[in-house]
Structures are given as C-alpha cells and as structure tokens.
Simulated scan of single mutants.
Amino acid sequence: MTDQSITRYISVMARPREFDRDAALTAAIDVFWSKGFAATSTEDLVQAMNIGRQSFYNAFGDKRQLYLEALETYQRNATSCHLGRLTTPASPLKGLLDLLVGLIPDDDALRCKGCMGAGSIGEFGITDPELVEMREKMIAVFHAKVVERIREGQRLGEVDPNVDAEQAAAFIEITMTGFQLAARGGAGAQELHALAAFAVERLRA
C-alpha cells in the first residue's frame, strides 16, 4: 500500500459515520414523547437514534438542545395537523369536532403516549423561559384560528351568538389538554369520542 493510499484509508476511517438526521430526530422525538426530558438519558437517545455519541454531539449539541429541537418539531407538526382538521370542513362545528376527535388515536399504545407538548408543561410548567416562549408562539397562532372558526360559526348560525368567541376558544383548548392528559392516564377512545361530541354541543346555537 502506497503512502497516498494509506492517507486516503486513514481519512476514510476517521470520517464520522453519515446518518439520516431527520430520521434520527424522529427517533429522538419518540423517546422524549414516551419518557419526558428528565427520564431520558443520552444513552437512550443514541441507541434509539442509532448514532455514535460523537455524531450525536456534533449534530445536535447536547440533550437539552436536542430536546428543544425535538419539541419544536413535534409542536410545529402537531399544530399543522390541528389546523388542517379545524379548517378543512365547511361547517365550523364539524371543524371543531374533527379537531378534538383527531386527538384520539384508535391504537391504545399510541393514545396512551398522550401529547409531548402537554408532557412538557407537566414536567416544566413555567420554570423554563425558553419552553414558555416556544409554547406561547404556537398557542397564539392556533388560538387565533379557533376564534376565527367560532366567529364564522356564529355568522352561519351554527354557534350560539351569545358565546364569547375568545372564551369558547380557550374552552376548546383546555378540553384538548384534558383529552391528552386523560389519554396518557389510560382513557379509552370511545369515552373520549363521546366527550368530544359533548364539548362541541355546548357551543351549538
């Protein structure tokens, strides 16, 4: 083997293993979603992500930085799905019902995972300013859309005109959080579907 060949061989062997960053992030989201931040170790993450520790640190920084990225990605994707269900039906009340029903997976194992965002609130509350800021940005966009649909429902005669749209939106959002916590605690799909219908009927004209 020539000196040049040896140099190339060493260079290749020293090069960090390439990996699919998006796939690794998805795996990290699943771990944090299931276990929370404190109960998740770096070893849990590198095993689930199927990467080495050095690749982990090079690509994601540390556990906290990865958690922030994972939570932001989860919340962005979840909010997009929420808005899709809320805004797609022509009927505002149907949109609100679809929004709630969409939080209730039929799969027991998936439903029992609850919501990573709600889990973050349960774990950190308002003690972490960075997480609070992230949450408030997401909530502001979502809340405005819920208010918009409720007011549309009032104009169409579907929603009680005497209902305060801001308060009704807050009611829907708190109901969503309640569903996600109840699911984490083992609530069944049929039970939650019935409660979704009950909640939306409280707004009907």
Rank of each mutant, 00 (worst) to 15 (best):
M1P: 15
T2R: 13
R8F: 13
I10K: 11
V12T: 08
M13W: 07
M13A: 15
A14N: 13
A14F: 06
P16H: 05
R17C: 07
E18Y: 10
F19C: 05
F19W: 03
A23P: 01
A24I: 02
A24S: 11
A24C: 09
L25S: 03
L25R: 07
L25N: 05
L25V: 12
T26I: 06
A27Q: 07
A27R: 01
A28N: 04
F32S: 00
S34G: 08
F37H: 06
F37E: 03
A38M: 06
T40Q: 04
S41H: 07
L45D: 00
V46Y: 06
Q47P: 01
M49R: 00
I51R: 00
I51W: 00
Q54W: 11
S55C: 08
F56M: 05
Y57M: 05
N58H: 12
G61C: 07
R64C: 05
L66R: 01
Y67D: 00
A70E: 02
A70Y: 00
E72I: 05
T73H: 13
Y74Q: 02
S80Q: 13
H82F: 15
H82I: 04
L86H: 01
L86Y: 02
T88M: 13
T88V: 10
T88Y: 09
T88H: 11
T88D: 09
A90D: 13
A90F: 06
S91P: 10
P92M: 02
P92F: 02
L93D: 00
K94F: 07
L96Y: 07
L97Q: 08
D98S: 11
L99P: 01
L99E: 01
I104W: 01
D106R: 14
D106H: 12
D107V: 06
A109C: 03
A109F: 03
A109S: 14
R111S: 09
R111Y: 10
R111D: 04
R111M: 07
G119I: 02
S120Y: 04
G122Y: 03
E123I: 09
G125Y: 12
I126Y: 15
T127Q: 08
P129Q: 12
L131I: 14
M134A: 12
M134Q: 14
R135F: 15
R135M: 12
E136P: 04
E136D: 12
K137R: 15
H143E: 13
K145P: 01
V146P: 00
V147D: 04
R149I: 01
R151Y: 02
E152F: 05
G153T: 04
R155Y: 05
L156E: 09
G157L: 11
E158L: 09
D160S: 10
N162K: 15
N162G: 11
V163W: 04
V163G: 00
D164Y: 07
D164T: 03
Q167S: 14
Q167E: 12
A169P: 03
A169D: 03
A170Q: 06
F171R: 03
I172K: 00
I172Y: 01
I174A: 11
M176Y: 04
G178E: 07
F179G: 00
A182S: 13
A182I: 02
A182H: 09
A183I: 02
R184M: 11
A187G: 08
A187D: 05
G188A: 14
G188T: 13
L192F: 07
L195S: 08
A197D: 11
A197E: 13
A199G: 10
A199S: 15
V200M: 03
V200S: 01
E201G: 06
E201C: 08
L203E: 01
L203H: 02
L203N: 01
R204I: 05
A205K: 14
